[in-house]
Design a protein around this nucleic acid. Structure first.
Lengths: 276, 276
DNA sequence: GTTTGACTCTCCGGTTGCCGGAGGGTGGAT
DNA sequence: ATCCACCCTCCGGCAACCGGAGAGTCAAAC
């Protein structure tokens, strides 16, 4: 019922290159049915064509080989379905992201950069409910939903009204994963609550820029503020803060969002400030 | 107006990792404004933040670095726009392809494989108008439009009515680029015509399977036929042929397409054939 | 004035999923 | 016997960086 073929023939049947088949053999993803002990010649069975085609399909979707292996090895359809769905979800998200980047790229190239208004403020130390974690950049959206969901629930329960925010470690941006703390300011004598920490944010001077609109071209404002600070101020240690003056909780329209980016500085610059 | 910053600071301003900045320096994509000759320390100017952000944006779209360089270096907006658009087009196509693969993957996993009907036929040698070329797999759609457009025009002019087809070299499938010949059968005494060649296709025995519907899961039929041939026939040399019995020229609905895959064999097998 | 600690440098190797080629052995047909 | 197409293994390389080693530098603190 099944015949056995050489690599070259199998290559033709599956549209996988011989090199690729060698590779899959080496890593144990798709081993030939038999190998001639003396010559080393590989022999595949025609029944293996199906698996090979499945692998090819998955690879066409850029699925990493370890995941492909998981799908292929999955005995039960459940695991298989799950891995597949996870991958497709990821692709979906990536796609949405791509669209965002494209639009923001268009804006970046066509529109003149909006004049950035930077103001200086002293923010005193304050206490806040906090949710902290080491977050991957990819998962930041989900994580924020989780964190602010939790903070929002407590705020609603206790009747706290305040502008929430978050601090981001540098590595979060540059290494694509790092420490993030979502916070919601509370009174200094606020009692602890389940599910959140009590954190004390240090006071200090900040250079603050307001970013209006959705967060897709957030990095532009971020870079502009950073440049401004580098040109006019002495930076102080500590993570950058974001204050969500108007965010998803205040309305459904991302265009109405207002986010304040707070860059810690040593002091308010005294020299005449030339905006730019 | 512009201040100068270290790699680390520049990294914070641009959200590019230090390693990445090193890399971009090395390949000359984004060189620091100055390098301390004794210490080797890099110094960037804040004015470089913008370029860096553009690069980051483009990389987020998975644009290869050489293309990024082209966009960044592009003095005039025209070249820039063009490179960009080309890239976005490619992404668009890739996306469409992804969707196709997903649906066909779904079908592949949920539906039982349709019983493959294989028939054997002797096809005599014939003459045809041909358009041949070395084609990249990515560009096959475009190329087919071009080739069959040309053949179709001549057919219309000369009143030729025949089923067109194409031959594909193995490498086209396995190496993602290879020789392809689109052909349209003509009478043996047909006169040459501008823009097309006259080719003679050799006769012989073929194992033929009919693939119905769009070509997204074409490779499945292809593999199934190949397996069948490997199990029941002796293969003959020569490229695989496809005959477009019902194709884009015959109606807009891909579901109505019928394509015959012709696999060259030495002779019609005499043994009792068990389908599978 | 030096010591600390954060920052930076270069170089080397590894990652993923293969491709290309060198150098040499095999297999079936003539 | 010879040919030629096929097959083998091994080595290096591609993109676009990341990780770490080992060493040098800078600025502030003691």
């Amino acid at each position: 019922m099944t015949a056995t073929v050489t690599v070259g023939e199998f290559s033709r049947l599956t549209h996988l290159s011989v090199k690729t088949l060698h590779h899959y053999h080496e890593i144990g993803l798709l081993a030939p049915a038999s190998v001639d002990p003396s010559s080393g010649y590989r022999r595949y069975e025609t029944s293996q064509v199906e698996v090979a085609q499945l692998i090819r399909r998955l690879r066409e979707l850029r699925m990493p080989l370890p995941e492909v292996r998981a799908v292929v090895d999955a005995a039960d359809g459940g695991t298989r379905e799950e891995t597949l769905r996870a991958h497709l979800d990821r692709m979906e998200r990536e796609l949405a992201h791509t669209r965002d980047v494209v639009t923001s790229l268009r804006e970046m190239l066509t529109l003149q950069p909006a004049e950035l208004a930077v103001e200086y403020r002293f923010i005193p130390a304050f206490r806040a409910y906090g949710v902290s974690g080491h977050v991957e950049r990819e998962g930041i959206g989900e994580w924020c939903e989780f964190a602010f969901g939790r903070l929002g629930a407590i705020a609603a329960r206790d009747g706290i009204v305040a502008t929430s925010g978050a601090t981001y470690s540098d590595e979060f941006f540059t290494e694509d994963s790092g420490q993030v703390v979502a916070f919601l300011p509370v009174a200094p004598d606020q009692a602890p609550a389940d599910g959140v920490e009590l954190v004390d944010l240090p006071g200090g001077f900040f250079a603050i820029a307001v970013h209006s609109g959705p967060l897709t071209d957030f990095d532009l404002s971020y870079g502009a503020l950073g440049s401004h600070v580098a040109e006019h101020c002495e930076v102080a240690p500590g993570p950058i803060r974001e204050l969500y003056a108007v965010g998803p909780g205040d309305g459904p329209d991302p265009a109405s969002y207002r986010t304040e980016i707070c860059w810690p500085i040593r002091q308010i610059p005294t020299s005449p400030v030339t905006k730019g």
